[in-house]
Amino acid sequence: MRKILQRMAQNSMYAIISIVSFLLLWAIGVQLSDIKIVMPGPWEVIIDFVDSFIHPVGRYTMPVHILYSLMRVVPAYIVGSVVGITLGILMGWYRPINSIFRPIYELIRPIPPIAWIPISIVWFGIGEGSKWFLIFLAAFVPVTLNSISGARSVDPLLIKCGEMLGASKKHMFRTIVLPFSVPYIFSGLQVGLAGSWATVVAAEMIRSTEGVGWIIISSMDTNDVAQSLVGIMGIGIVGFLLATIMRNVEDRLCAWTVREV
């Protein structure tokens, strides 16, 4: 126990040294070169970041911007994931369903969600609709892919085992195929979440009046690099939190996935 604490203290010390030296390099670099005309130093950015929680950037403070972005991400992400899991598992397990949907899915799959931005604006306008559509795609595509490979990888011995124990096809789908795919589905959910977050940022950068993506894009018009960096910090922190939450949910739900070696 003591050793672990010591190790943790040591590690965080290294982390602090590493980050502080990075900030120092940044500060010195900015001071010594011509870039200081446009590029602020680290302290300025950190102060601005804290300040963004109290004084609004544009119309809203940072938490409200984040909330706007999350309101775009969360519902569409959930819908995209649910559709993706359902379709993916069915495609992975039933050959005819795979044959029906595979060609159309393969058509959509290689097109990055960001490339849908222009057409989604044409279809759904510049409001929330187009963003929801984009996030839906950003979640749907990877979640489906991973669910397919999950259902495909089910250990045939376990299926034989189910048959041997007298389970029907339907029962086995629910009690073997589905649980077996869960770890695969989660890695799809993880990729989909990161993709959704990147996509909402991109979508907000192209057309919006609020959200974290807007924070960085509006800085371009005002040439305010500090604001851009504040936005990047916000995006990074939220992205990190989302990934962490997802990982915890996964650990909670699949206590059994400790790999058997």
Binding site: Y14, I35, V38, V201, S228
Partner: peptide, 26 residues
């Protein structure tokens, strides 16, 4: 590892798109 990883972990969750305005400035 000890020196680079904290920085890397810090920058990792930032989607590439978010760097666009900053890179245009630089």
């Amino acid at each position: 590892d000890r020196f680079v990883r904290p920085l890397f972990d810090l920058l990792k969750p930032i989607p590439g798109v978010a760097w666009i305005p900053l890179m245009i400035v630089i």
